[in-house]
């Protein structure tokens, strides 16, 4: 089992939103995740940190069944992702929301139709319900008046807010964020961080945030993990991880320049 010695919390007693058991994932000869064990607790915000290329996004895709591991078991919301039938996997995904790094908004649809999309296509809600719920969601993300615009007429931060509104439209149990502040200016990043924190507190559901933004993780996360060289270098409460004396963890958190 590849768990770093300095792991500060084994999470053995928590109710798992995502559980990785001895998971290995390779791309060609390159090992991205090497026999990884990880438990992410329900009802909290967990940030997974790490340098680029350490398998953070891969881990998210494994948890959603968008990628398959070479070895190991992945359980999301109690469902064995790779033992499930296609219909069970689709049903599992309806219990989740995902905010993509590039937002993945549908460019040909208006903001209203983007947020309404899962309500219409998945929940089959009637149009009155759709209108009420979309108005509520746009208000929640602080953009009540942009419904008739298309995504290309919004700023990066606004697109991120709309993507969050769409991700939580079906009231998921788990929301996954892939680099939510990537490419945003510091002030906009901070506003997105606050939005994520406020939304999690309001909804009380599980948020898993993949990021290499240390400040963002410190603001929004209850639990923090750090991936390094295909392993979970450290995992635990935010306070415990920030108190870590492990040189690799410290170098990352303190933004020590990498020796080329």
């Amino acid at each position: 089992m590849k768990r770093a010695d300095i792991t500060v919390d084994t999470r053995a007693d928590v109710q798992a939103a995502i559980e990785l058991i001895q998971v290995t994932k390779r791309f060609g000869d390159r090992v991205i995740l090497d026999n990884v064990d990880l438990v992410i607790a329900r009802g909290r915000t967990t940030a997974l940190l790490g340098p680029s290329g350490t398998g953070k996004s891969t881990l998210l895709r494994l948890a959603t069944g968008l990628l398959a591991p070479e070895q190991g078991t992945v359980k999301t919301l109690g469902v064995d992702v790779f033992g499930a039938s296609k219909s069970d996997l689709l049903a599992l995904r309806r219990r989740m929301g995902m905010l993509f790094q590039d937002n993945a908004l549908f460019g040909s649809l208006s903001v209203f139709d983007n947020v309404a999309f899962p309500l219409r296509r998945v929940a089959r809600a009637n149009e009155a319900t759709v209108k009420r719920r979309v108005a509520e969601l746009l208000g929640m993300v602080g953009l009540p008046d942009v419904g008739d615009r298309t995504p290309d007429r919004l700023s990066g931060g606004q697109r991120k807010r709309i993507a969050l509104a769409r991700a939580i439209a079906l009231e998921p149990e788990l929301v996954l964020f892939d680099e939510p502040t990537s490419g945003l200016d510091p002030q906009t990043s901070a506003s997105i961080d606050h939005l994520i924190k406020d939304t999690q507190q309001r909804l009380g559901i599980t948020f898993v945030v993949i990021t290499h933004d240390v400040e963002s993780a410190r603001l929004i996360a209850d639990d923090v993990g750090m991936l390094d060289n295909g392993t979970v270098r450290v995992f635990g409460s935010r306070e415990a991880v920030w108190a870590s004396t492990d040189p690799v963890v410290r170098a990352f958190l303190d933004r020590v320049p990498v020796q080329q």
Binding site: T64, L66, L90, A91, L92, R93, R94, M96, G97, M98, F100, Q101, D102, A104, L105, F106, G107, F117, P118, R121, V122, L170
Partner: peptide
């Protein structure tokens, strides 16, 4: 490329069907 297909699949929708 813009992950819209993944977004559909993450909503529990079948992208081949849709």
């Amino acid at each position: 490329v813009t992950r819209q297909v993944e977004a559909l699949e993450m909503m529990g929708l079948d992208s081949l069907q849709l």
